[in-house]
């Protein structure tokens, strides 16, 4: 089964108190931010702090991701230089608009791996898509590099670009979410949803998580540890779903043993996609 990325918890790269023990909340991934949550005058200190944390703190096997500043800023190159050396699992590119944006960063990472004696290809990448241009180019972005483990939508910049704002229903994001999801699935990589900023509104948060799970997303970026439990709950199959899945797998096993092709279970035809879904439900249930 591919790696679980239900929750990717943001932590500002400038805050020692949050960086030191963020792993205790057990998100699926920790995302150290060097970009928007860090003020311009602390870009250098955040870089040193995240670098030392990655090299010295035991994050208990949780996937580590660093969101760097874009290469169009004065900080991007230096971020890459220090982060490739510090070796998080993944480097996340902000505001990706074209496949070339990914390839440009990939080339720099490759050169740095060579310089530092790191195995070529070890540093993985993620691309955040945060504009109409990026959404329209989602497919070419998703397929632009073997290092890409996923693409993510960054909604705040995107809706501003669209000249609208976010609503509880998320209608304004539906096209972008579906476009990204299809691009990610076509490329065989993860699709990750944007943050939900109203930390106090847990009901609205749950609805959004249910919505993006229903669409097919692998998970969501989150900004507060208290959001983790809700996402993991929503992404965990119910007992009923688990039992149904077990029945499907049992039925298909019997059919295979008896040499029968198509089978039915409780009046419903069981074919390959249903078996695949059942396998995923059982795997997810076991993890949880």
């Amino acid at each position: 089964m591919s790696k679980l990325r239900r929750t990717m918890l943001y932590v500002p790269g400038s805050r020692p108190s949050m960086i030191k023990d963020i792993y205790i909340y057990k998100p699926d991934a920790i995302m150290f931010d060097l970009e928007d949550s860090v003020s311009l005058k602390e870009k250098d200190s955040a870089r040193f702090l995240v670098s030392e944390a990655l090299q010295n703190v035991d994050y208990r096997g949780i996937e580590t991701v660093v969101r760097i500043n874009g290469l169009d800023t004065e900080f991007g190159q230096e971020d890459l230089k220090m982060m490739v050396k510090a070796q998080p699992d993944v480097i996340r590119l902000p505001k990706t608009e074209t496949a070339e944006d990914v390839k440009e960063v990939e080339k720099i990472i490759e050169d740095l791996e060579l310089e530092y004696g790191i195995e070529k290809g070890k540093t993985k990448m993620m691309a955040a898509i945060e504009s109409a241009t990026g959404v329209m180019n989602a497919m070419e972005i998703a397929k632009s590099s073997d290092r890409l483990i996923g693409i993510a939508i960054g909604a705040e910049d995107y809706v501003t670009n669209l000249k609208t704002k976010r609503t509880p229903e998320g209608t304004e994001l539906l096209f972008a979410r579906c476009q990204l999801l299809n691009a990610a699935r076509s490329a065989g990589i993860a699709a990750l949803d944007t943050v939900y900023s109203y930390v106090e509104n847990m009901e609205g948060f749950r609805k959004e998580v249910e919505h993006i799970k229903g669409l097919g997303f692998d998970g969501k970026s989150i900004i507060n540890p208290r959001q983790i439990e809700t996402v993991h709950e929503v992404f965990t199959p119910t007992v009923e779903e688990y039992e149904d899945a077990l029945q499907v797998l049992e039925a298909i096993k019997r059919a295979e043993e008896s040499g029968s092709g198509v089978i039915s279970l409780n009046g419903k035809m069981i074919d390959k996609p249903i078996v695949e879904r059942a396998k995923r439900v059982v795997e997810l249930s076991k993890i949880n």
């Binding site: 020692p16 030191k20 250098d44 200190s45 040193f48 702090l49 670098s51 030392e52 944390a53 090299q55 010295n56 703190v57 230089k81 220090m82 050396k85």
Partner: peptide, 25 residues
Amino acid sequence: GALDFVIKARVKTALYRASQGGSYE
């Protein structure tokens, strides 16, 4: 009450700033 990794990071940052971007790494 800083942990060792924080102390190292802060000293390195101060050195980086005092040397006006001098390469530490």
